[in-house]
Amino acid sequence: MSELEPKRAIDGAAEESIHIPIAGPASLFTQLKGFWVTFAAQFKKVTTVQYPEVKEPTAPRFHGRHQLNRHPDGLEKCIGCELCAWACPADAIYVEGADNSDEQRYSPGERYGKVYQINYLRCIFCGLCIEACPTRALTMTNEYELADDSRKKLIFEKEDLLAPLRSGMLQPPHPYYPGTDDQDYYHGRVTEAHPSQEQK
């Protein structure tokens, strides 16, 4: 016995207890058992979702593409505070604010977001921007089909992100609802646009 050999057989007790079966073809019954699994699978319910034709709805709070919301009369909720850009861990958001005036009013209050860009190639859809937004201007939709063929197309501008104008909304810039100020907007007292708000 050399020095390198393992010393397991010192007592002589382990020598006869190890039995290794010789590999060969499995018995017919074993083979049939295997085929049965394959055969029975064709009677199971199909789990495949036929994706491009059938689109399963996502979870209701799925983090998809962003949306910039509007007040019920069409004024933008975004006030250009840049808190979303500060919260973003991937530096995907770029905001430039500008001052509102009574002639050019885009949002209630002093300021509005003049430039608003989200780079979807950087965005990780974490939702920290939504948590940071003080006016609930920024929320997320369930839309997820975003793939495109160039970097430029995946930087979404303000026009791409703004919510569509629904009935009763007017395209900003336009003045406040008659007899209200920004506080009325934040308390939800403005429910629709007034005809006098339309700017020529």
């Binding site: 491009p52 190639l121 965005c123 859809f125 997820y144 975003l146 793939a147 495109d148």
Partner: peptide, 21 residues
């Protein structure tokens, strides 16, 4: 690169959408 696919990570449907594009 032919197709850029955003998401972190993108869900399987998003990858299939990129493949279809």
């Amino acid at each position: 690169v032919d197709i850029y696919l955003p998401g972190c990570p993108p869900r399987p449907e998003m990858l299939m959408d990129a493949i279809i594009k």
